[in-house]
């Protein structure tokens, strides 16, 4: 990780705004009145101790959970109940804390699944497509080849050519995380949600992953929201940081601002009892 301080970048356009969102499961309040925004092009980190509601927040953003209160706007459009498949179609991709890959499929096939929503045609269009594809003919085949080309570019980008045909279940954890990133990238997302992209990695793997995250942000211009426990990584990578604790937002700002925030220190180190 580069030791020199990251230059402060300025972003204007808001891609996602979350206002006063609350989410509870029965009596457990996972998120309480949290508001923040994500600007187009930035790398935004969400940090906080275990159980602070970070993953729940990502699940709300991509439609797995439906908050009881609050409003979420994506690309300026407010949304009510969101289904994950619609969130994906609108340009939100994600990875998971405990790698959710299709274990029986090869690396190539896994990343190819990221190209699926490109061609949604509604149920009956799909059924017609089933027949076309069963015969492996015509337009179905042509688009298959086009998708394949895009996926090969991603494979080159992530430097995983050597494992293209390997079933991902057999890959070491670090590589699985990389394949999962590849699958998310294949969706050409506008907003990429990364849930602990470096959990369980050794130093070298972490450095690789950091480099990929910066490159994705740089080359594809993808907006990234990430959850990460490794604070030095977060400080290096992110433009702005949100800190959650017990489901509430306790701080929000640049790495420098967050670092010197008393509430954050308390949350991480504990407050001495009287």
């Amino acid at each position: 990780m580069s030791p020199e301080p990251v230059q402060t970048r300025i972003f204007e356009e808001e891609i996602l705004s979350v206002s006063d969102v609350s989410l509870s499961f029965g009596g457990v309040k996972a998120i309480q009145n949290v508001s923040f925004d994500i600007k187009r092009g930035e790398i935004r980190a969400i940090i906080g101790p275990n159980g602070a509601g970070k993953t729940s927040m990502l699940n709300v953003i991509n439609g797995f959970y439906h908050p009881q209160e609050g409003l979420i706007r994506f690309k300026g459009k407010a949304r009510r109940r969101m289904r994950p498949s619609i969130a994906a179609a609108q340009g939100i991709a994600r990875t998971f804390q405990n790698v959710a890959l299709f274990k029986g499929m090869s690396t190539l096939d896994n990343i190819m699944t990221g190209r699926l929503p490109r061609l949604e045609k509604g149920i009956f269009g799909e059924i017609v497509n089933v027949f076309l594809q069963a015969a492996y003919l015509g337009p179905a085949r042509r688009s298959e080849l086009e998708q394949r080309k895009y996926v090969e570019e991603i494979i080159d980008f992530l430097e995983i050519q050597h494992i293209r045909r390997t079933p991902v279940g057999r890959l070491p954890y670090g590589l699985q995380k990389r394949v999962e990133l590849g699958r998310a990238l294949a969706m050409e997302p506008e907003l990429l949600l990364l849930d602990e992209p470096m959990a369980g990695m050794n130093l070298e793997e972490k450095e690789d992953m950091s480099r990929f995250i910066i490159d994705v942000n740089d080359q594809y211009g993808t907006t990234i929201a990430l959850i990460e426990h490794d604070i030095s990584v977060v400080m290096d990578l992110s433009d702005r940081i949100i800190v959650l604790d017990y489901g509430r937002k306790i701080a929000d700002g640049t790495p420098g601002e967050v670092q010197s925030n008393q509430a954050v220190m308390d949350a991480y180190l504990g407050v001495p009892h009287e």
Partner: peptide, 11 residues
């Protein structure tokens, strides 16, 4: 293979 992951890629 994995419902949740399938949903996340927009299936």
């Amino acid at each position: 293979d994995d419902h949740q992951a399938a949903l996340s890629v927009g299936i």
